[in-house]
Design a protein around this nucleic acid. Structure first.
Lengths: 170, 170
DNA sequence: CTGTTGCTTGACACAGTGTCAATTGACAGG
DNA sequence: CCTGTCAATTGACACTGTGTCAAGCAACAG
């Protein structure tokens, strides 16, 4: 809080006039960051896609490309979630919203008759949700040293490999 | 530290006679837990496997089954890694060791001529490493509500689906 | 001139980690 | 029996970080 106050050129106590706790400040920051990054517009492309495969690719590009923008904040929120119930719930809600995007992509595949019957809709959604989690991104880019581009391309490839009933195009 | 001391029926200061910092205590605990859980024996089965597919399955069973045993400690280590360099390095080393198990399973597949050429050895290793990470286990079992059994079975299934050149048996 | 608003300074409480000094009790060896 | 050592004890302290509180100040509107 001291660091933030200094960077914002206000007193530490002034922060508490606006945010009751550190967690609350962090949560408010997530909304602000979404706003300046126009997170909703980013996901527009995937909703506009015609085929299921297109939608899957577009969603992976959109969300996968968004993660690096929010990673620092995501880390802070995840760390906060260990001790703060409100932060945990706020982050969980954002992730549930993101899961809906995953589900919509899987449903689009299903609608095209292209969803691999090895996986139910729910299971495919859970798996896609996991591949696109911040932790998975963190592991592949930071621990494995993959570039951002390699991350999105490989994620698209394995998603097609796993979820498509016929391998539809690379 | 107070809590631990109380549970161990010693004074808080006695802990500092044995472990210089909280991080050091945590790191020492990981060695202890490995010892009482005979973590090396668990991975024996996968080394004994004849075919690559068998080895892959055995490794997923062994490591996947070990995660729940160490999860609390892993969480503590991961949280500590945010602030403590020694803890980060200790955890990273354990994970690098685990990655060798992943690589050995992938190499065994490769040796049988069964590794899907879509993925290089390194890439397949990184992906298997990611699927078997504590964070992925955490996401699937805790956030998605999967049972432990479902986690290992599904992980085996997607590993076969992704890494095997011909779908070899379910 | 006055009341309100938003911020300031400066103090404090509380929890947690890590340090230090003095003391105690057990135990082994001369 | 005395003595040194060792491991633990109690009790204090420093330092950091979060959150609270009170008093004061500057700007601004009516």
């Amino acid at each position: 809080m001291s660091d933030i106050a200094r960077r914002a050129d206000v007193s530490r106590q002034a922060l508490y006039l606006h945010f009751a706790t550190r967690a609350e400040l962090l949560i408010a920051t997530t909304f602000y960051v979404d706003e300046i990054n126009r997170s909703d517009e980013r996901l527009e492309a995937s909703r506009a896609a015609r085929s299921g495969v297109e939608r899957l690719d577009a969603f992976i590009d959109a969300w996968g490309g968004y993660i690096p923008e929010i990673y620092s904040l995501a880390r802070a929120m995840l760390a906060m979630s260990d001790t703060d119930e409100a932060a945990r719930e706020a982050w969980a809600k954002r992730m549930r919203d993101m899961r809906e995007g995953c589900e919509a992509a899987i449903v689009a595949l299903e609608h095209d008759g292209k969803l691999n019957p090895e996986h139910s809709r729910d299971q495919a959604t859970d798996l896609l949700w996991t591949f696109l989690s911040v932790r998975t991104w963190e592991h592949l880019t930071i621990d494995c040293g993959w570039s951002q581009e390699r991350y999105t391309e490989t994620t698209k490839k394995i998603a097609r490999q796993m979820f498509l009933v016929e391998n539809g195009g690379d």
